[in-house]
């Protein structure tokens, strides 16, 4: 009973905020709705007992990815942030591409969920580990991820690393004439290099060589 009530609360919030991401006129508001969507999805994860996935969703997507989204979006000019989605003729040309992509994702989801429903033996391995009693969600996830799927897991890590290096290489530029602080040089400076103690005689002064 209580479980169902909470499920409907979270899923309603998730769907409404997902619609608001595209519908809201202010880009920053869109990102905040996206964050709300992530949070309610992670609540749904926790409700089905996948507490590890829910927390990772919060940490990775809300705590890191969405912060960077917000970072970029906030840099845009606030006055230009009126999203003329439904009005201008330019942006409506993107609608067919969006429709194609969403149809593909929809059919992929149907294939996965249909397979789960009608061919349960395909998922036997996953079911057998997660249903065993006394083992927490995190343990069973680790046992699958680091044994049967270790290669896939490592490859996905490598792909992320390559993407990161690619982004850095694309944006890296060596600027001329920038003064940089060399910490090693500063720390290893000796007293004899910087300071010289002189005997100053009265009425004669000191000759400082240039």
């Amino acid at each position: 009973m209580a479980h169902a009530i909470f499920f409907y609360i979270f899923s309603t919030i998730a769907i409404i905020s997902a619609i608001m991401v595209t519908a809201s006129k202010n880009t920053v508001h869109s990102v905040f709705f996206l964050i709300l969507d992530f949070i309610s999805i992670s609540c749904l994860f926790i409700m089905i007992g996948a507490e590890f996935l829910g927390m990772i969703m919060l940490i990775v997507y809300v705590g890191a990815v969405a912060v960077l989204f917000l970072f970029v979006v906030m840099m845009l000019n606030v006055a230009q942030q009126k999203n003329q989605w439904f009005l201008s003729s330019q942006s409506s040309s993107h609608i067919p591409i969006g429709l194609i992509i969403s149809t593909i994702i929809f059919f992929e989801l149907i294939i996965v969920i249909g397979g789960w429903k009608y061919k349960p033996e395909l998922f036997e391995k996953i079911n057998s580990t997660s249903s065993s009693e006394g083992i927490s969600n995190t343990h069973s996830l680790g046992q699958i991820l680091y044994t049967d799927y270790i290669h896939v897991f490592q490859i996905s890590g490598m792909i992320l690393l390559v993407a990161m290096i690619g982004a850095i290489v694309l944006t890296f530029r060596q600027r001329e004439g920038v003064k940089k602080q060399d910490y090693i040089k500063q720390i290893s400076r000796e007293r004899s290099e910087g300071v010289e103690v002189l005997e100053v005689q009265s009425n004669k002064g000191v000759q400082i060589d240039d």
């Binding site: 920053v28 507490e51 590890f52 927390m55 919060l58 809300v62 705590g63 927490s136 969600n137 995190t138």
Partner: peptide
């Protein structure tokens, strides 16, 4: 007393940045 207590703490502390960003923007 939840199973993923430390992750919960970490998640909440990583959400803490939002108050500051929202206020600043």
């Amino acid at each position: 007393n939840i199973n993923v207590g430390i992750l919960y703490l970490f998640a909440v502390s990583s959400l803490g940045v939002y108050g500051i960003i929202m206020g600043g923007w």
